[in-house]
Design a protein around this nucleic acid. Sequence first.
DNA 1: GTACATGCAAAATATTTGCACAGAG
DNA 2: CTCTGTGCAAATATTTTGCATGTAC
Lengths: 143, 143
Amino acid sequence: MKRAKKQIFHDYIAKHGLKSTRQRDIILDAFLSTDRHLSIEELYLKLRAKHPNIGYATVYRTLKLFAESGIAREMQFGDGQTRYEHVTEGEHHDHLVCTGCGAIIEFENEAIEKLQDDVAAAHDFVITTHKLELYGLCAACRK
Amino acid sequence: MKRAKKQIFHDYIAKHGLKSTRQRDIILDAFLSTDRHLSIEELYLKLRAKHPNIGYATVYRTLKLFAESGIAREMQFGDGQTRYEHVTEGEHHDHLVCTGCGAIIEFENEAIEKLQDDVAAAHDFVITTHKLELYGLCAACRK
DNA sequence: GTACATGCAAAATATTTGCACAGAG
DNA sequence: CTCTGTGCAAATATTTTGCATGTAC
């Protein structure tokens, strides 16, 4: 799966006349080998440990590329930072966010998706994406 | 209803030892008499027409106050600007956003809310709020 | 009179852009 | 060799803060 995303990215690069560079590979590896919801800053700091010469701007530009290529998606959880999450083709999930510890749990629910389509149809909309986030406290944080 | 929100805000002000000022009243009026999803900048520009001496910072601070008092809520629709929407007690709604013309339609769906509770229960979460946004194209923008 | 509020400008954040140089194809 | 990518710094955009002054209570 990690391999599949590298493949998708490299295909995208090739198809658009872009170039495969050392930095992009490094950032891609770092992105694929972490948690699914990291901010640019988190990724940048993580990278800098091993690759102090990679610039902030390159991380921004490269993550945007990931998003365009379809292997990542920009997310806003309202904390002022844009986060990027992994996207796997055909998969969709929503989020359960603990406001105590910041944990983000993913879930899928077919029934909800179905109802969303109904709502959209009732308003004569054609949905392209959606975002569902439930904010609350996890068991541990309620103690 | 507009009156009710003014009441809520003034009660909040009073209870917290804050002060009722001309600016807060002006901003409150402007907020209550507009669309339900405006950015700070939109509100600020609208205000400046009639009240050129109100500062940007005051608008920011006042809208945060509105949110604290419970008559407004901060929203992020991913366009880089924080927007504030009206909150009516006991009411909850979600959003249908047209990516073509930017229209935002509100809707409510009990069945979805119920399923969300089920999801939360399954993960041992207690939900405090949630956010559901459906992005797509409205009928007019599909033509 | 004593806080709290305001307005302005400066600061803090987050993100984007210009440009000279480096490197992939 | 050409055109894209990189790194750095500067520019933008958004939001917050410090401070002197104003004003509600």
